[in-house]
Every structure is written in C-alpha cells, then in structure tokens.
Computed example of a mutant assay.
Amino acid sequence: MAFGFGKKKNKATDADQAPEAVAAPTDAGAAGAAGVLRLPPGPADEAYDRALHGPLDESEITSTEGYVDLGALLVTPREGLSLRLEVEENTSRVIAVTLDLNGSSLQLQAFAASRSEKLWRDIREQIGLSVGSQGGEIEILDGTFGKEVLAKVPAQGNDGSKGFRVARFIGIDGPRWFLRGVLGGEAAMKPEAAGELEDLFRGVVVVRGETPLPPRDLLLLRLPKDAVAGPQPGAAQTLPGQGVPPQGGEQLRRGPEITAIG
C-alpha cells in the first residue's frame, strides 16, 4: 500500500470542488445523448442506516487492529490501494486523505458536528452554489449512501478540447461528526467502477475524540506511524479542487511521495 503527501495552496474558493481525475469531453458516451450523468436509484437520506452499513464511529468497533491509523480516520488497507495525504501549505496540517485505486479516487475529510444538527443537507446546497459560480451544474441524486451530489464543471483538456470535470460527492452524518467523500475518475461516472471505493468508504472508522470543537471544524489527520518519506519528485502538479472543507478551502498541490512500511 503506497502513501504520498500533497500540499494545499491558500485562498482558493470552494468552487474548486471537482477532482482532477474526472476530465471528460462533453460529447463522451458516458454522459449519454442529453449530456446528463445519472446514478441508479437508491435510498433517501433517512433510509440509509449508517450504523448498520458504515462508515462507523470508533465506539462501534471492538478493535483498531488491521486499520491504517490516520488520526481522525481509520481506513482498511487493500491490495493496489494508494493513499495520499493532502497538507495545508502554510501550516503543514494534514487536511484530507485521498485513496487511489484502479484509476479512480476517493477523497476523505471528517468534520466536527453537534449531537443534534445534521450537516449534509446544507453542504449539498453550498456545493451547488460553488459549482454554479464557475459555470458548472449539479444533480442531487438518490445514490448508494442516500442523497448525493453529481457535479460537472467546464474544463479544457491537455489537447485544448473543451469538456468537463465530474465529481460525485457523498456525505454521512455520524454521532458528533460528518464524513465527506469525493469520488473522481470512472467511479464518478460509472456505478460499476465505484464498487471498491464505496466499500472502502463503508469501512472507514471516524475517531471524533472528546475535544470540544465548533461544528464544521476539520478533525485532525496525521501520517501513519509506519510510513517513511521517499524521494522528492519534480515540480509539484496542481490538482484542481480536491480537498475543500464545507466552509471553504484551497486548491491542493501534489508533493513528495512516501512509502508505507511494516
């Protein structure tokens, strides 16, 4: 299982929400004749039983053995899985983790929440406003985890052709926390390509801790203890719009790679 660092550039808006992995031409077959991407019908927010299907709270597991410990998040290792930590440039704080598998990605961020208020409905609306402000569009869908947001943002390919970026946002309200996932690549557009990353999302354990935090504050992430830094790559590559907290955020920048040990 590989690990990597990323850096986060300051003062981008949370309109930059569509991940790098989802560029596609506007006339791509995946969009259909009408250019609208749709996921198969699924349960509404109220119908999805988080405690039964995951993600889970730390109090709902009996042991942390076998997980990759990232502080606020525990994730299950899997063959072929690459794990990249995104770091805020001016504070060196880890603010997101991105799981790369089979050409698709799942970015994870966990936030504090109150015992009574659910955040996902408001955050869906914020995503819609952000995407709309840069000429994109969203659909609110009934998906695997209840209500989801499918966002399309205009983009230009490396060859100069016009297209769009696609991101599939999923959110789960837990006990005093909120977990957001952003699927990119084929997993954002093809349900059959999303299965393994959806399983990883179900298997995430959130460690909220007892420290009082205002709602929407990021829960602290950290580098796994058994990971060591590897060689520095060349110039960092900007990743458009991964890692934006519900209250706003900045673009991320890929940094040095590190490799897991143990």
Score class of each variant (00 low, 15 high):
P40E: 15
L101M: 01
V207T: 08
A24E: 05
L220P: 13
G71S: 06
P19K: 00
M1P: 11
P214Y: 06
S92W: 14
V68D: 01
S161Y: 11
D69C: 01
A110V: 07
R93A: 00
D27Y: 06
P175Q: 07
E250C: 14
G42Y: 05
A28S: 08
Q232H: 03
D45A: 11
D199P: 07
S82K: 14
L83F: 13
D199G: 00
G163N: 12
L99P: 15
L85H: 07
L56E: 04
L37P: 04
T13G: 05
A112Y: 12
V166I: 04
I258G: 08
F5L: 05
F111H: 09
P191W: 01
A236C: 02
L218Q: 00
G6D: 10
L200P: 14
V97I: 05
R208E: 10
A167E: 01
T62C: 05
P25H: 00
V36G: 07
E79F: 09
G6V: 03
Q247S: 14
L83M: 15
N158Y: 01
S133D: 02
A33P: 07
K225V: 08
F3C: 09
A31Y: 10
D122V: 02
P240H: 00
L129T: 12
F201T: 02
R254W: 09
G181I: 06
G71I: 11
D199K: 15
A12Y: 12
Q134L: 03
R222I: 10
D159C: 01
V131P: 03
N90M: 10
R222T: 12
D100W: 00
L200A: 04
I170D: 02
A12N: 07
R50N: 15
M1S: 04
T238Y: 10
T144S: 08
E192W: 07
N10C: 13
N90D: 12
M189K: 15
T238E: 15
R168F: 01
L99T: 00
A260S: 12
P215N: 09
G29V: 11
A96T: 01
I138G: 15
E46P: 14
N90L: 03
S130G: 11
K225G: 06
D159T: 03
V153E: 04
H53P: 15
S92G: 12
G243N: 09
R165K: 09
A229P: 10
V22M: 03
G6H: 05
G157S: 02
Q126M: 14
G6Y: 07
R93K: 03
L239D: 05
I258W: 05
G234M: 06
E148V: 13
M189R: 09
D199Q: 13
E210G: 08
D142P: 04
R38C: 03
V207D: 04
T144L: 10
S59G: 09
G234I: 07
A33H: 01
K9I: 00
V68P: 12
K118V: 06
Q109W: 04
R202G: 09
P175L: 10
E210D: 04
L56R: 13
A12K: 07
L183Q: 05
P233N: 12
Q107Y: 11
P245G: 03
A96E: 01
T238K: 08
V204R: 02
F201D: 10
K147M: 09
I61N: 08
A194W: 02
E139D: 15
T259Y: 13
E86L: 14
A72E: 06
L179K: 10
L221S: 02
R216H: 05
E186T: 00
T91S: 13
G128H: 13
R216S: 14
